[in-house]
Design a protein around this nucleic acid. Structure first.
Lengths: 148, 148
DNA sequence: GCTGATATTTAGAATTATTCTAAATGTTGA
DNA sequence: TCAACATTTAGAATAATTCTAAATATCAGC
């Protein structure tokens, strides 16, 4: 066993990039690893700051380029909170998001295999190949605080 | 009967705004009507352009202010495509969105009453009060073109 | 109806997020 | 090794959004 199947780390990473016509450059690999090191939903700028710690010469433009290449290679997902900069997520397992309206936090919500299948009939003609659910409400912490 | 219940037009609009601590100013009413006049998902700038046609002195800042007030009053929803500016949607009936990866179009998908209820168990502690599904794939037009 | 307190609008400046540009560098394959 | 092409880089340019301060409008109490 290994994390490889669900979470490609280096070999499959290169393959995935190349499958989409990209080279597996040190910067792309590094940005990818940076993203995976912490499972939150950083903005491009946060990724930039973190990436610089181990690759001080990387530039903002490169971070945008790399994120783009990773998204196109389906190695990273792009997620939007309601406001503010675009965020990135390296958790490619099927999952959804919960946004706390109180503290602004974003949380991954696993998709149990039982609801992997289309949960809603689309009008004729639409061909969806994926979907994502965005929940909004109170996260456990904020829900507790509110009750007081 | 009337459209009032599902689609507040003027009276309930004022009430809704006031309930959230806003005044029902001419600009806010006008921005709201502008949004309802065409059921697409315009950006703030598109709303600005349309709103100016009947209220030439309205400013961009006001459009942002009004949209903000309308969103806070739950009269308008905010929707994000993957990239680009935030978009606004005046269809408050429960519905979801379909994004076409080919043409970039966004489509409303009605939520049949059968799936109004929580469709996925959230981890303990999370209190969701709403959710939205974002589908991605090909819209009918693009799906047809692709087949050729 | 006046008056002061407060809310809103406005234009434009400022800020933030993202993309573009052109030059330098790196990589690949003949 | 050379030519072709991809990538990175810094900084400029653009786009999206928020902020600021002054002018205007509205409201509640008199």
């Amino acid at each position: 066993m290994s994390a490889v199947k669900e979470n490609p780390t280096v070999e499959p990473l290169a393959e995935q990039l190349e499958k989409s016509g990209f080279r597996a450059t040190p910067q792309r690999v590094h940005v990818y690893k940076t993203l995976r090191a912490k499972r939150d939903h950083p903005t491009a700028e946060e990724v930039f700051i973190r990436a610089k710690q181990n690759m001080p010469d990387i530039s903002m433009a490169t971070v945008y380029n790399c994120l783009d290449a990773l998204v196109q290679s389906h190695l990273v997902r792009l997620v939007n909170h309601d406001k503010g900069a675009t965020r990135y997520c390296s958790n490619m397992m099927e999952h959804h998001h919960f946004y706390c309206v109180e503290c602004g936090g974003a949380f991954d919500i696993d998709a149990p295999s039982s609801v992997r299948e289309p949960l809603l009939k689309l009008p004729a003609g639409f061909k969806a190949d994926r979907y994502e659910i965005a929940f909004r409400g109170l996260c456990p912490d904020c829900a507790t605080k509110k009750k007081k």
